[in-house]
């Protein structure tokens, strides 16, 4: 079972408290009607399916209830970092060193 750090509660807690919520930084356009079919399809359906560090969303469902972002390595299943929703995506170079911290 994964251990996940909730950036709002500032606690590292078991996966059972959290729910996965898909890829992060997929922003709903302010005026969807202005989008072409292709662009709307991209927003709705197309995801990066990354092998390696993946920006993704989690919700501390059975805790504070907040959605937040995380970088998780999809190969090792280890979290590199978590951060509040709305913050820009952290650069990967800054993360790899810290990746082994939260054991």
């Amino acid at each position: 079972m994964l251990l996940i750090h909730c950036p709002y509660c500032d606690e590292t807690l078991p996966e059972a408290e959290f729910t996965y919520a898909g890829e992060a930084h997929v922003i709903r356009p302010p005026d969807p009607s202005a989008l072409s079919d292709d662009d709307w399809q991209g927003f709705l359906f197309i995801r990066s399916n990354t092998r390696g560090p993946h920006y993704e969303r989690w919700r501390h469902f059975h805790g504070c209830g907040r959605f937040f972002n995380a970088v998780r390595d999809t190969v090792s299943d280890r979290f590199l970092t978590t951060y509040p929703a709305g913050q820009p995506r952290p650069a990967l170079e800054t993360l790899t060193a810290a990746s082994e911290d939260r054991k």
């Binding site: 919520a21 919700r59 907040r66 929703a85 709305g86």
Partner: peptide, 12 residues
Amino acid sequence: NMMEDYLQTEWP
């Protein structure tokens, strides 16, 4: 969950 998602992340 869906309402919270939109409220928290799209329309904070």
